[in-house]
Each structure stands twice: as C-alpha cells, then as structure tokens.
Write a protein that binds this DNA or RNA. Structure first.
Lengths: 194, 194
DNA sequence: GTCTATATTTCGATAGAC
DNA sequence: GTCTATCGAAATATAGAC
C-alpha cells in the first residue's frame, strides 16, 4: 500500500475529529477509530504514541489560529489602536471559524477532555504563552473595563452565532447567516445605544 | 448518623458538580466523589443507581431554567411580541446565569459527557421537547432571519461575557462586569448601527 | 445507609511476527 | 506499516454482611 507520506496519519486525524465531535473524546476508543478506518488498533500506535497525542495534534491547529490573531495585537502600539483594530480582528475570527468549524466544535464539546493535556510538555509550552497573552489583554487597565467586556461579548456573539448556524438552527444556508453574525458582533462591541 | 432526609444525596450532587467542573465528568471516578465525601464508592449506589444518574440530576436543573425561559414565549401571541420581549428575557437569562454559574459551567465543559444521556428515558422525554421548542423558535420564518440570528448572538454575548467574568478574565469584581454584559447583549440584539 | 469484597468490562498500551 | 495476541490498569457495578 504505497500511500503518499503522512496520508494515513492525516486520515486518522480526520476520522478522530469526526468521532470526537459525534460522541466525545473519552467515549471514543482507539478501537472505534481503527474500525472506521479499516485498520487495527495497534496500527494507530505506529502513527501516534498515545491516544492523547491525537487530541493534542488537533488542538495545536487551533493554537495556531489563536496565535495568528494574538500576534496582530503585538503590532499595535497603544490601547486606542487595539480598540480601533477590534472590528477587523472580529472579521478575521469569523473567517477562521467558518473555515475551521469542525475544529472549533471539537474544542467546544471536549473542554473537559482537553484538561488532560495539562501536564503535556508540548502543549504547556505553547498554551501557557497563549493564555497569558490573552489574559494580559483582557485585564489591561488602560483599556476601559466596558471595552474589554464588550470585546469578549462580541467574540461570544460570533461563536454562538456561527455554531448555531452550523447546527442548522436557523434552517437557512449559513452564507446568509454570516453577515448578520458580523453585524451583531460589531454591535455588541461598539454600539452605544441604550 | 441522623442526617436530614436527602441531605447526603444533596452533598453527593454538590461534590460531584465541583469535581465535574474541576476535571470533567469522565475523569471523575465514583471513588473520587466518595473519598471527598468521606464515604465509600458503594454507598453512592444507594443514592444513585448509576454514575450517569448523578450527571442527569444536575443537568435536569438546567432544563428547568430553560423551560422557564421558553414558557414565557408561549404566552406571547405573535412574532412582534417575541421580538419586543427579547430584551426582558435576556435580562432574565443573565440573572439565571449569575445565580447558577456552576451549573452552566458544567454544561459548557461537559458537553461530550452529556451525550451519554441520549438514550436515557427520563432525559429524552424532557430534552426532546425543549430542543424542539427552541428549534421551532429559531427557525420560525415569520421572524426575520436577522432578528433570529441576533437573538442567538445576544445569548452568546451573555454566555461568554459572564463565563469570562466568572473566570476572572477581566481582573475585576463581576458586579461591575454584569451591567456591561447586559448592555453588550442588548446591543447585539437590537442595534442598527453600521 | 454504609461497609468489604469481588465480579465484569473496557480500554490503553506493548510484544513480536509478517 | 499493519497484524494477532495479550497484559495490566482502572472503572462501573453487584452481592451480601452489619
């Protein structure tokens, strides 16, 4: 079976992502992944040392997205620039979520499972850094508290809006929904209406 | 040990909720719950037939909150009334979340575990009903799509805003944060700013 | 209502042949 | 790279005494 290099590994990750979203990480056994893939459990161990490492690899792809977003803040000079740049970053976040919905879904549905990655070296080095940068941003007293709260709320609006659309809650194509989500999120951040 | 009736059962639920939030449902063994409570594993089986039933009981308390909210929609006559009533319901939702933060946190962090309740009779009868009523509301074509999307987004703003506050992301007392969350959520729903 | 002891199952992980 | 076979650990759940 001469398959392109890394193809099987990639297929394992695809199937695992599917199953983690269907039934959760903990309820998904390596046997199930292997079965759906048409191989045996032992074969998986050639590609991943531990079950945990499959979850980790998927999670790291989200890290990269988060890092890209946070990196853009480091380019900004003062708190005024951050607030001014937020709508653009919000749009970027929408794009990221639309393009990687399954990954975001996994993160949402398996938060408890992701806790086992605490203690994992490869994860810690990256994650600590990301979380610290995020907390620093959100507890920065130079930005008025209301602005910081609204930044967070606008992210929540995007997140739940797009997740609901993905779950076909609205019964319409998500192409139509996305612009409304952008609008709602922007309003959550910057409207001064009372 | 003459304890008030149902007191042990209640303590089990308290400790379980704690542990489920700390490390997740799947990673929490009955042994851990028993240890923290100062009893043995077998004793838990006197109060709950299965581990799953502990999770179910906690989850049903959220059902009740959700049902209370949805019930208020049944009192409304047309789609205009629904849209008009939304800000009030949003405020109600904020109050519910503040008063039951731990329960909401459990639901957020253990979505994968909650999937095992699918198939549970006691759960299905209630849940199907709730979910159907919610989906009917959100796919009601008499309400403009944008309004429905914004309803959902406003809930997301509340949810993520309050969860972040609870996790001390902002570094301030959540008393100060709550009003800003209300404002952001209201804006996400009804601002027409561009 | 709580205990000790044990049955039963499931799963992650490894060894070694091909 | 994939297989068969198996180990060992851990967890849920049960039986029966107190």
């Amino acid at each position: 079976m001469a398959r392109p290099r890394g193809a099987t590994r990639e297929r394992i990750l695809d199937v695992a992502l599917e199953l983690f979203n269907e039934q959760g990480y903990d309820k998904t056994s390596l046997r199930q992944i292997a079965d759906r893939l048409g191989v045996t459990k032992a074969a998986l161990y050639y590609h991943f040392e531990r079950k945990e490492d499959i979850l980790l690899e998927l999670h790291l792809r989200l890290h990269e997205i988060g890092r890209n977003l946070l990196d853009q803040f480091d380019l900004l000079e003062d708190e005024g620039a951050i607030v001014a740049a937020w709508p653009r970053l919000l749009d970027q976040f929408v794009d990221d979520m639309v393009a990687n919905r399954e990954l975001f879904l996994m993160h949402e549905r398996n938060q408890n499972a992701l806790m086992v990655l605490e203690g994992n070296e490869r994860h810690e080095s990256e994650n600590e850094d990301l979380e610290q940068r995020f907390r620093r941003l959100m507890s920065n007293p130079e930005i008025p508290l209301e602005q910081r709260v609204r930044m967070t709320c606008s992210v929540g609006a995007v997140f739940i809006g797009l997740m609901s659309a993905g779950a076909s809650i609205f019964g319409e194509a998500s192409d139509e929904v996305v612009p409304f989500v952008r609008k709602a999120a922007r309003a959550a951040f910057s409207s001064s209406e009372d």
